[in-house]
Each structure stands twice: as C-alpha cells, then as structure tokens.
Design a protein around this nucleic acid. Structure first.
Lengths: 337, 337
DNA sequence: AGTTCGCTTGAAAGCGGTTTCTCAGCCTGT
DNA sequence: ACAGGCTGAGAAACCGCTTTCAAGCGAACT
C-alpha cells in the first residue's frame, strides 16, 4: 500500500497519532477500548479519526492480533441453490461474531478442493467445508493440519472434527414409508455426484426401504444438476420402477422435464421425489414431492460450531438434523403395468 | 498466532529458512520466483517447505506487499437466486487472477450497506457493489474514497466509476411490444424494493410502453421476494390491468401462487411476466414468461472490470448488457372483460 | 595480476497495527 | 514530608513476510 500508483496515500495509525498528538499505542487503545484513556485524549483521537477518515488496515490487525477476523467456506457449486441459503446463515453468524466470510467454490471439481482449502487456511481463522467431495484421504490430511475446521454434510468416522449433517436414514424412512403406503414395490434411485458423501449416505439409508418391502435400484446419473437428471431418464425407464427418488431436487426436476417431453405422466405413470426442497421459497414453491432439509438452521448451527471451535478447542459428536418429507404433486399411486 | 492455546505453533518463514539453512529472503524469493536463486538452494527450500508443511501467512503477505489478494462483493440478499450466479462468475474471474473473494450480505437493509462497504475496503483490493440499495449520497461518498470499486446494477450519473448494468429500456421495449401485440392495453407493474435503482429504471423504461399504446399503472409491493408478490395481488386485481409485469421472477411467482389460490387463471384472466429469468436452470425452467438477464456474463464482465481497475486506474463508460424476452406460458391474450 | 562488473545471498528496514514494558506523575498512608 | 503503590501514556518490540541495500564472490577484461 506504500505504492499505490495514482491513488492517494493510505492513512495509517501514525497519521492519526500525529494529528491527535498522542502515540500510536493510545490510538489503538482508544479504538479497541483495551485500556482506560483520558477522556480528553479519547476525543482528540476520535476527532482525528473522523477528520482523516481513518480505517485500520485489516491485514496489519490480523498480523498483530494473530487472528484474521475471517472465516472461510468452501462450497462445491454456488449455482446450486442449496448453498447460498447455507452461506446466508453462516454469514449472519460470522458477522454476529465480528467476522467476515470468505467464499470459495470448487465448481464440483474434487481435485480443486484440496488446494482451495489450503488457501483458506492461510487467510481464515476457521474453515467450513460444505459438502466436500474430495477423497477421504485428502480430507483426513487436511483435518490433521490442526486448523479449526467444521465439516458440513459429511462425516468422517474417527476424525475428531465437529461435523453437522442431516439424518438421511430418517428422511429415507419417511420416503419409503410414503411410497410403500401408496403401494409401490419397486423404486429407482437417481444417484448424484460420485464423490458425494451425501449420495453414499442416501444409498445406505435405503436399507430402510427393505423394511417396507420396497426394492430399490440405483441408477447412476453422475451429477447434481438438472441436466444430469434429464439425461438419466432413459435408464430409469429401462428399469421397472414405479417411483424415482432423485439425489436432489435439481436432478428430479431435470428428470421431470424429460419425462414430460417423452409423454410419461408424473405421477400417474411414474412418481418422482426430490431431495432438499429447493423451492424458490415458501410461497412460490414447486409442486415437487421432496424431502426437506433445514438449510438455514444447518448453516446457522454450522457457523456456531465453528465459532465455538475458535474460542475453545471444543469438539463434539456429529450433529444430525432431521429432515421432513413434503408430499406434494409428483408422487402418487403406482401405475398399473 | 503467537498465542494459539492448545494448538501447535504456526510455522513461519524463518522456520523454513532455518531448516533449509538459507535466509528468509531467499525462501521468499524461491516461493515467489522474484529472483534467480541457486538451484541447490531452491531444492533445499522446497524440501523444507514440504517437510514442515509451510504455508505463507496471507495477512503478513498482504501487509508486506500492500495488496490483500482479495476482492470484496456486497450483495443485498444471498437467498435471491440472482446473486449466487453472479458471485459464481465473479469468483471465477477473481480466482483466475489469483484473488480470493469475500462476500457480504446486507439482507436488503440499505442502512447496513455503508458500514459493510467500509469494512470491505479495509480488507479488499477492490470492491464490487452489486445492486446497492443505499442512498445516492452515501454511495457517492464511498465512491469518493478513492478505493477501487465497480458498480453493478446501478449507475450513478457523473460518478467516474466503472459501472455495469442491463439495458432496461431494451428489455421493457420487448415486453411492451409483446403485450401490445397480444392486444393488451392496460398493464400493472409490481414494483420492487423502494431503494432499488433497478426498480426506478424499470419504471422509467415504461416510457417505452407509451409507444405501443400500453398504459402502465405502478403498484408498489415493496419487496423482491415472492411473499411481496403474493401480498400485492389484491392491489393488482383492483386495477383493471390485463397483464402484470413484476419487479422480478420471485415477485411474479408469488403473485401467481396467490392468483391460483384465488382461482384467477393465468394467463387466461391475467398475464404475468417476470424479470431476471431465475429458472433453476436451462433444463428445469419454469413456465414463466420473463425477461432474461445474462447473469453469468454480467458477473464475468464485472469481475474483469474490477480486475482492470486494479491494474491501471482505468475508468470507462457504463456498460449495459442486453436482455432477452423469454415468452413462455404465463403471458397470453388479454381477458375479455 | 589487478580491477571492475555482475550475480547471488544475507542483513535489515519496512508494511501497519497490537501489546508488553517502562517510566512519570499523582495519590495515599504513616 | 517521604516511601510505596497505582495509573495512564509513550517507547519499543513484535507479528510474518517482502524488498531494498550492501556485501561477497567469481568471472571477465585490461
């Protein structure tokens, strides 16, 4: 900042101290309220600050204090409506604790994540890993770096790291119960990104389906976007499923778009159920039957976990928030074939 | 960082220099490639870095270099799908230039923005103001701070600041042409947040309507959410409009939800047109007739503008990207009353 | 062979704050 | 009236890294 071509020189604490005729230490004390200062000096400092338009340099403060006043969040895809809502909540918590929020996106490329997290660790007091796709080994390596970190939508067995996720089993149980009650016997699951831990968990949770006499075939679609859902419809139709459960709402909506093109009635010929409840919001929701995830609460809790972690070295058991099945218009009685 | 209770001491450049038996200056030179260094020393440094797991402290680098390596973005609402897409593009550009992205959200509270921007200026090389709602006077004050800044979705006449927005007039002309061609004579406009510059511009652009013999009544709904649209339906119905143009898609969808509840057919009894084209994506789009805004390009261009600004003190004319009317299912012939 | 030149490297001076340390000055107790 | 204890302000050290500056060294040139 010593060298800002064409720009006015930055105002530093010593400018203020000169103007206020006090030492830099006093300016710092006044601004941070860390010690008692003569009211007269306080006024002089405030006047000088106002007059000069002084703003402390965040980098210098960070360096001196040993804290950046920043938390970092890694997300796979900002375009996936799931994450902005989480970010919103995290940001609010961070702000409430006087911290800023840095955001990085891997664009669903697991290979990029490692580097991004390393970068976040260089400039953030704590890091929130939202739905990290990276291989377990890399993740464990990063977690071992002894840097405050919270795992979101992923749980690593044995890792002593605060983690938060949702109760996939509970959600699946509701879905399977719903489908079974409608009379379905065979369902297909449209899997999401191969590296997604949440995807594995959903598949695992299908164990619940058995109890309801529901048979589930897993159809890989390889992505979390509606395009992926759209493309995977053929494979779904090839199975004899009467209901499809999608990795998330985007995939479900993509599938529905394709089904409509093909003239396959939803839910008359095929029930479709999504995941996440990514409606635009409460009022303008879609008519998709889906499993709702409390994203704001998830984000808030995650933010608070991280904040606690930054204060004391608190570590806790993984937290699983409950999901709720939202029965709407895309699930119905099985087609008679 | 000198004092990290319970955590292992941070590894600094001097640890590396000691381990590699070179000076800190040399470590810095090797890591940044700023000067030629004996290959043997280079190897020793790299070995030491790897062995110790050294990562340069971003705050210290920022301080020494006079650059934070960070850009800041202020958005009104992360939950509004408009912004994440912009952020995604901005983030990609920033990353391509080796910069990180800091995000702050005002939650649609204009009174908060000033403070947030000041904070961003303390820790970012450049700041992108996305759809700032703050009063013009405050904005001008901030712009006068001589800090690299780009204005997004707002243009301040006379301010020498790179700005980017969309061609509201062009978009409105298309909408009005479309409605006029269908035979509409009276339309209502559901206004958005009172502090939104874009809202004013949309209203202003209605001048275009006149040329098509279309009369437009402005109905305030006061928000940018679907709830706002939902609540404003009564006022719309009270007018004798045969078509409604909403501030954005969320408002439009909220209105449609309410209209459906009231049994008012869309578009048979009332045409509804949105703004932004906030469909979940290309495949799973809604059936809303809307004016599409190229958000990714907008974000990309904005990011590039900021990047240019950071290199040289380049300032340019406001850039207006074109909008495209997407005619879908919610607009049709006017009802015969 | 003696200088000068050019390169690489280490020492040291910042960058802009915070915090410890030190020292006046004042108040209190005897 | 004087020693001791407090209090509040300034000087200086430090945070971790970059960059200027100076020095050392070998090569090249006269």
């Amino acid at each position: 900042m010593q060298n800002r071509p064409g720009r006015s020189p930055r105002i530093t604490i010593s400018d203020v101290s000169t103007a206020a005729k006090v030492s830099a230490a006093t300016v710092s004390r006044v601004l941070n309220g860390t010690a008692k200062v003569d009211p007269q000096l306080v006024d002089r400092v405030h006047d000088a600050v106002r007059e000069l338009g002084y703003r402390p340099n965040a980098a210098a403060q960070g360096l001196a204090r040993g804290e950046w006043g920043t938390i970092g969040v890694l997300v796979p895809d900002l375009a996936n409506p799931y994450f902005p809502e989480v970010l919103k909540a995290v940001s609010a918590v961070a702000r409430a604790h006087g911290r800023r929020m840095m955001v990085m996106e891997s664009d669903e490329d697991p290979a990029l994540e490692y580097e991004l997290v390393e970068d976040l660790m260089r400039c953030c007091d704590g890091v929130l890993l939202a739905s990290p796709r990276m291989p377990r080994a890399e993740l464990v390596d990063l977690l071992g770096r002894d840097h405050p970190m919270v795992l979101f939508n992923r749980v690593v067995a044995g890792a002593r790291v605060p983690s938060i996720s949702v109760d996939f089993t509970g959600g699946m149980t509701q879905v399977c119960g719903h489908l079974a009650q409608l009379g379905h016997r065979r369902a297909a699951y449209l899997g999401g990104p191969p590296a997604s831990w949440g995807n594995d968990e959903r598949v695992r949770a299908f164990e619940a389906a058995r109890a309801f006499g529901l048979e589930v075939t897993v159809v890989e679609c390889g992505g979390s976007t509606s395009q992926a859902g759209y493309d995977a419809v053929a494979a779904v139709l090839a199975s004899d499923a009467t209901a499809v459960l999608a990795y998330n709402d985007l995939v479900a909506l993509g599938a529905i778009a394709r089904l409509r093109e093909l003239g396959v009635g939803v839910p008359d010929e095929l029930s479709v159920i999504g995941f996440d409840d990514i409606s635009l919001d409460r009022v303008a929701h879609s008519d998709l039957t889906t499993v709702s995830v409390p994203r704001d609460e998830l984000g808030r809790r995650a933010g608070e976990m991280l904040e606690r972690l930054l204060v004391n070295d608190y570590s806790e058991e993984p937290l699983y928030l409950p999901m709720t099945l939202q029965v709407r218009d895309t699930s119905g009685l099985p087609a008679v074939r």
